Simulated scan of single mutants.
Amino acid sequence: MILQANNIFKSYGKLEILKGVSVTVKKGEIVSIVGASGAGKSTLLHIIGTLDKPDRGTILIEGQDVFSLNEKQLSEFRNKHIGFVFQFHHLLPEFTALENVCIPGYIAGQDRQAVEARGMELLDILGVKHRAGHKPSAMSGGEQQRVSVARALINNPTLVLADEPSGNLDSENATALHQLFFDLRDKMQQTFIIVTHNEDLARISDRTIHMRDGLIY
């Protein structure tokens, strides 16, 4: 198993968000997490991605108990092993598409030329190589989201975590993005965990996890 989340609890004040959630994911799986707003989906995704810590429970990624690491080690682990795709892209407006894609590689201390070559290769695979020199404001929503997927993949992560990745896209671009995830899985054996309200994406995923009131059912 690439991911083992064991008995995860999380509260904010007196509000219980996660009430003992366990999830396992295999390499190359595309898993959707669905449920009503407030079910705990994004909180679970953020904890799996080490952006937040559980009150109780463990997260193992490729056998590494991630919350046994200190802050510096955890930051390095996150940068190397986890890619993120968010609903609102989170591209830095002052940088070009290529520069945005390469930032995690630069942070990892990789060779600049190698990172930029890899960035161009990913933009090409994702169909937005012609936008490499453009800033986000000059790109469509669909193009920005493809750039954000390329950024998530730049360090060849163990897991790609996507939080409502098509929530801001029209139906045509959403369908294209969903197909892209499957193409990347087939080409690169990439593993995706996707929080989504999109029923079409959930239906075509390898597995769908249903959440309600902080529990999987």
Rank of each mutant, 00 (worst) to 15 (best):
K129Q: 15
G133F: 11
E76Q: 13
A132Y: 08
K135E: 03
I61F: 09
F95H: 13
P54G: 05
V66W: 05
Q73M: 14
L92I: 14
G119P: 13
T96D: 09
G63Q: 11
K80L: 13
R78P: 08
G109V: 06
T58P: 03
S137I: 10
N70G: 09
A114W: 11
F84K: 00
P54Y: 01
K53T: 11
L126P: 03
G133M: 13
Q64M: 15
F86K: 07
F67T: 00
L122D: 01
V101C: 08
L69F: 06
E116I: 09
R78M: 11
Q110S: 13
E71D: 15
E94W: 06
L122P: 02
T96H: 08
A108C: 08
V66Y: 05
G105Q: 02
S75H: 08
H90C: 09
L98Y: 00
C102E: 05
G105L: 03
K53Q: 12
H81W: 04
N79C: 07
R112C: 11
F86W: 12
H134F: 02
A114P: 10
A97E: 04
P104A: 10
G83V: 11
I82C: 03
F67H: 01
D111E: 14
L92A: 07
M120N: 15
F67C: 01
E121C: 04
G57T: 06
G109S: 06
T58Y: 01
N100P: 05
G63C: 09
D111Y: 06
K53M: 08
F84Q: 00
V128Q: 05
R112H: 14
I82Q: 02
G105W: 00
V85P: 02
E121S: 12
Y106A: 10
L92S: 04
S137V: 10
D124C: 09
K72I: 13
H134V: 01
C102N: 05
F86P: 01
G63I: 10
V85W: 03
D111A: 09
